[in-house]
Design a binder for these strands. Structure first.
Length: 568
DNA sequence: CGCCGCCGCGCG
DNA sequence: AAAGCGCGCGGCGGCG
């Protein structure tokens, strides 16, 4: 008979020591060990049987372990779990959790050298003492055990915590980045790297052509107000300088201006300065922020990890002897919508094919492009234009799915909350929002206040409409990642060349290298690539089963094995 | 000088 | 073919 798995809770006892407490699932302590403050990694190495860690913040404790060459199987991240549980409508009594408000402090983004030692930066700090850690763990375990649907919420907390581990690991592994390819792309697009303070030749040339077309050799192209006034002087009645509006006009300045804006964007966002700062040592190491978006999506901080332009993807390049497995899910969000609404007809249209093609095949709309616009419009709440025009056809064909998002929108417009499939609940409306609504319903409300109230109500309705879909898609993606992480770890280390930039833990094993909402990149020894590709697909199926059980929706992947991550 | 909001645009 | 959701970042310019 095996014992019930214990949790191991790590906390800061004093400036000199940390404490590891072994506890049962109900939080009752069974053993405690005191360690020197720098003894955590060696303790973990000496206790490989420990497989479930509890800590206040993964970004605080895990980088130290990774740096020491240690990977942890699973954890319970108290900060992330607190954020979910204290807001979730599946939790019956939020009061104990909400009273522990110090847990709402934002997470630290710590590097290994500062994680355990930097204490005096003035930022709000998470609780870290043993009594505080244990008390919160017990509050959370109680909230989970007594929740309306404990299994779903436990799955969500486990997936969120696994995501925190993965985010730390992604930073250690990094995206294998070929600076030579990046430089070649920049040079082809912008001209060769200029000396400091100068513009690359092609950017300078485009700027000169814009100024010539405007008849103004001095105008600043980087200042929106100045550029807009210059356009007006040249006879263009533009209301903004955004690309989609400029494209409407027929004028000699438009082509070079759009060219300038495109090049200027590449230069300032991902030019040579970015290359110098973010791609040192053959790796791009983005800072991911798990749970950084209210819907549960990850955010990023620094480096623009979630905005890498497609143009630069050829610079993502496997190490010698290694390759990349690049996988993304086709139409993740509408598939999730079919599943959470139990809309069999939409699931049928999605099965075994491109979901948009499936909708066309059912005769709902005429073309794939129309299907795409209609589906996006339905999930985002479009009301005007072609998208708004196409949504009613979708509503007739898929009343369950559309009813689900329409209901979510109605709840949001009234000021209510909605929840994802696993129980992440949307935030309450702000005090300002409620005041606008209350003011509009006053008998002597000023003319126009009703319009403002209706507008902000509809804004919030679009948010809650999208929340249920985007948030559940994020849950599916976390489950996919977490399961894949385990499968990859079960593979044998490679006897071939090491991926020396990927850190001690990963340099001889297939490892996740990039994640972007519905896409992953695995960096793998060439010999393991097919096995990895199979694992990626099996994990997608496992995620489907974990979230949606027997409901017949599938999540088809586009999986490519390639030395670089160029798209199409 | 730093801070902050706005604009525009990259990603899903 | 639309301008509907969620983000982060760079550059500018107003403000204290």
């Amino acid at each position: 008979m095996t014992a019930v798995p214990a949790w191991h809770i790590v906390a800061r006892r004093s400036d000199e020591s940390i404490l590891v407490v072994e506890a049962a699932a109900n939080g009752v302590e069974t053993r405690r060990t005191e360690l020197a403050v720098d003894g955590f990694a060696s303790f973990v190495i000496d206790h490989p049987e420990i497989d479930r860690w509890v800590w206040n913040d993964t970004a605080r404790w895990y980088p130290v372990l990774l740096d020491a060459g240690i990977r942890v199987p699973r954890c319970h991240d108290l900060r992330l779990a607190h954020a979910i549980l204290s807001a979730s409508d599946l939790v019956r009594d939020h009061r104990p959790l909400r009273a522990a408000a110090a847990w709402d402090a934002p997470g630290d983004v710590a590097t290994p050298d500062q994680a355990l030692f930097a204490f005096d930066d003035g930022k709000p700090r998470l609780p870290e003492r043993p009594d505080e850690i244990l008390a919160e763990f017990r509050r959370q375990q109680h909230a989970l055990a007594t929740a309306h649907d404990p299994d779903r919420l436990r799955l969500l907390v486990a997936a969120e915590s696994a995501g925190a581990l993965i985010a730390a690991e992604l930073r250690v592994a990094g995206v294998p980045w070929d600076a030579v390819t990046h430089d070649r792309i920049l040079t082809a697009a912008l001209g060769s790297r200029p000396t400091a303070g100068a513009l690359p030749s092609r950017v300078e040339d485009a700027a000169n052509r814009v100024r010539a077309a405007l008849g103004d050799v001095r105008v600043s192209l980087d200042s929106q107000p100045k550029l807009l006034r210059a356009l007006h002087r040249a006879g263009l009645p533009a209301r903004s300088t955004s690309r989609w509006e400029l494209e409407e006009y027929d004028h000699p300045v438009i082509a070079p201006l759009l060219e300038y804006k495109r090049m200027s964007r590449l230069l300032s966002a991902n030019g040579w300065a970015w290359l110098d700062e973010w791609a040192r040592g053959g790796r791009f190491r983005p800072v991911y922020v798990p749970g950084g978006v209210v819907t549960g999506r990850w955010a990023s901080s620094g480096g623009g990890a979630l905005q890498l332009p497609r143009q630069l993807r050829p610079a993502v390049r496997a190490d010698p002897g290694w390759t990349l497995v690049v996988a993304d899910v086709a139409q993740l969000e509408p598939r999730v919508l079919a599943a959470i609404s139990r809309d069999i007809r939409l699931a049928d249209a999605a099965r075994g094919t491109d979901l948009y093609d499936g909708i066309v095949a059912e005769g709902v709309v005429a073309t794939r492009q129309e299907a795409k616009i209609a589906v996006l419009g339905a999930m985002y709440g479009a009301t005007t234009g072609d998208s708004g025009r196409l949504v009613p056809a979708l509503r007739r064909a898929y009343p369950r799915a559309m009813g689900y998002v329409d209901d979510a929108a109605r709840v949001g417009e009234r000021g209510g909350r909605v929840s994802t499939w696993l129980g992440r609940t949307s935030p309450d409306p702000s005090a300002g929002w409620r005041a606008v609504q209350a003011h509009a319903s006053d008998v002597d409300a000023a003319a126009g206040s009703g319009d403002a109230a209706r507008r902000s109500a509809r804004d919030r309705g679009r948010f809650t409409r999208n929340f249920v879909v985007q948030g559940t898609a994020a849950e599916w993606a976390l489950a996919w990642l977490a399961d894949l992480r385990t499968r990859l770890w079960s593979m044998e280390p490679t006897p071939g060349p090491a991926a020396s930039g990927s850190g001690r833990v990963f340099e001889r094993r297939p490892h996740l290298a990039f994640f972007l909402h519905d896409e992953i990149i695995v960096h793998t020894p060439i010999a393991d690539a097919e096995t990895v590709a199979t694992a990626v697909a099996e994990s997608a199926e496992r995620a489907r089963a974990l979230l949606f059980g027997g409901f017949p929706i599938d999540f088809p992947l586009d999986v490519r094995i390639s030395d670089d991550a160029a798209k199409d």
